[in-house]
Design a protein around this nucleic acid. Structure first.
Length: 288
DNA sequence: TGCCCCCTGCAG
DNA sequence: CTGCAGGGGGCA
């Protein structure tokens, strides 16, 4: 579900809530979604958070780190209530905002903090995960080490993209920009929206995309991601922030899931097709 | 490089 | 009922 803006918003929200708090208890309801020995985490304090592509890393003060991926439907919800660590019963009722998120049959992992505060990991489709590693191991994990630059990183240049394209002469531009080893954090929504912004068809063979178009696309992807960040991310489906609030970006989609609707630029109908097994939306008149 | 799959819910 | 869903690993 969440792509770069949504994960970034969750990460920023979590920073405000959990940095400096001590993890007293972890309740793992779905074993599959938590890999590692929970007791290694008990008594450790959260020192910092990082986002890498669509992953969140929670660094602890005992030389361990938690690596989280929300995949399609993961949610991280923070509840300020105090909690009895023996009975695992929270005091009082969740706030009105949280009620829609807490806890439900999709709550698979629950962190309880010393002195109060509960973090819920919900995931309807159970694709997400939390994994415990030694902090020093994180940079060498394949899923981290292989990542391309963040879209806002100055290392993302047309020359860099062209260097990636050379090795894969048949790849379509949309598949290229969704490859996390090329660019970290762009998923289906922002691939479609950024390509529309740059007037590049998602079906174009990447090697046929001109340098000037790549320059435009880099501007566009940054613009689209920033726009989404300022509008709270996309909540077309299950995305909510740590306070269980939806974003508004879905109200501003120009092509994504707008099949049959008029193109906001030229009025012709938005088309849906499939690229790399993913629903792909574009304007055949504006994008070539 | 393309397809299947993990899992569950929802729209048509 | 079928098809679809924003991720991405594993397989041929």
């Amino acid at each position: 579900m969440p792509e770069l803006p949504e994960v970034e918003i969750i990460k920023r929200g979590l920073e405000q809530k959990v940095i400096g708090r001590t993890i007293a208890d972890i309740e793992v309801r779905a074993k599959k979604l938590f890999q590692g020995e929970v007791s290694l985490v008990y008594g450790s304090k959260v020192v910092s958070l990082e986002r890498k592509a669509k992953m969140i890393i929670i660094n602890l003060d005992n030389n361990y780190s938690l690596l989280l991926h929300l995949k399609m439907t993961g949610q991280l919800i923070f509840d300020e209530r105090p909690c009895d660590l023996k009975t695992r019963v929270a005091g009082g009722h969740p706030s009105k905002d949280l009620r829609a998120c807490l806890p439900n049959q999709f709550t698979h992992v629950i962190f309880r903090f010393k002195g109060g505060g509960i973090l819920f990991f919900n995931d309807m489709r159970k694709f997400g995960y939390i994994k415990l590693y030694k902090t020093v191991e994180i940079p060498d994990l394949k899923v981290i080490a292989d990542l391309g630059p963040d879209p806002f990183d100055k290392a993302l240049t047309p020359e860099y993209l062209m260097s990636k394209i050379v090795r894969r002469p048949k790849i379509k531009i949309k598949q290229l920009i969704m490859d996390q080893t090329v660019i970290a954090g762009v998923g289906n929504i922002y691939a479609d929206e950024s390509l529309f912004c740059a007037r590049i068809s998602p079906l174009r063979i990447a090697k046929d995309v001109k340098r000037t178009e790549l320059v435009k696309w880099i501007d566009c992807v940054r613009e689209v991601l920033n726009f989404s960040l300022t509008h709270g991310g996309s909540s077309e489906n299950t995305y909510v922030n740590v306070e269980c609030k939806k974003g508004e970006m879905q109200n501003f989609f120009k092509v994504y899931r707008q099949t049959g609707a008029p193109c906001p630029v030229c009025g012709s109908k938005i088309i849906r097709t499939v690229v790399g097994g993913r629903g792909t939306h574009y304007c055949n008149a504006c994008q070539s």
